[in-house]
């Protein structure tokens, strides 16, 4: 168990000793199940037994976002034959969509699960064009990031993109490092719905 101690000035001649017990570090994970269309029976028990707490369900993608303080969470989950992929969730920093369709991504940044949700929402809402410009997937290009723990994130995106494509959305994905967002060439098109997601940084 971790302890941290610090002294705080209480008054000119008194000192308050405070002992804080550091809270266990919680991490966010993505767990993708083998069935792409729904969450399998018993998934919640599996995740709970592994020390995880479901924070978001992505039913249509057969995936969940999980928070856990258990350092061996991934190891436990990956043993299940229900699970196709599990890994640490990355955080990217998209700007809010600027066009007609507003999906409220977290202003300060968004986890990949939220982006996937935005894609699905857009597809369900008959959005015509999605522009995805998420900065570089460094973990594709840098062997240090090319671990199985990261791949779950990418798989989640792929499922969300395929979902959108099946719904008839034009989904544009750019792949390369560099950020900054453009551009409202289509903002005057009142009849066309466009979801624009762009990154300011590739990774948080």
């Amino acid at each position: 168990m971790l302890f941290s101690c610090f002294y705080k000035s209480f008054s000119e001649n008194q000192v308050l000793l405070s002992i804080k017990i550091a809270a266990p570090v919680s991490k966010d994970y993505i767990v993708i199940f083998k069935d792409q269309a729904k969450l399998p029976a018993g998934y919640d028990k599996l995740l709970k037994d592994a020390g995880g707490k479901v924070t978001a369900k992505l039913d249509k993608l057969g995936a969940v976002e999980v928070s856990s303080t258990d350092a061996s969470f991934l190891e436990k989950v990956k043993k299940s034959n229900l699970v196709q992929e599990a890994g640490v969730q990355n955080k990217i920093y998209p700007e809010k969509p600027v066009f007609q369709e507003t999906v409220d991504l977290d202003a300060g940044g968004a986890e990949t699960a939220h982006i996937a949700e935005a894609l699905m929402t857009a597809a369900d809402d008959n959005v015509d064009v999605v522009n995805m410009s998420l900065g570089g997937y460094d973990w594709f290009q840098d062997p240090d990031y090319a671990t199985k723990d990261i791949v779950a994130d990418v798989n989640l995106f792929n499922r969300a993109i395929q979902y959108a494509i099946q719904k008839g959305v034009q989904s544009l994905v750019q792949q390369v490092i560099m950020a900054w967002t453009l551009a409202a060439q289509v903002s005057y098109l009142e009849t066309i719905k466009v979801l624009h997601i762009a990154a300011q940084a590739a990774k948080g």
Binding site: D128, S133, Q170, A179, L182, L189
Partner: peptide
């Protein structure tokens, strides 16, 4: 600016006007 974040939305925009 420079970036594929400049390139991708131009293509998205073109897709938009074609659909329109």
């Amino acid at each position: 600016y420079a970036g594929t974040s400049m390139a991708a939305p131009k293509t998205a925009a073109l897709a938009g006007v074609i659909i329109a």
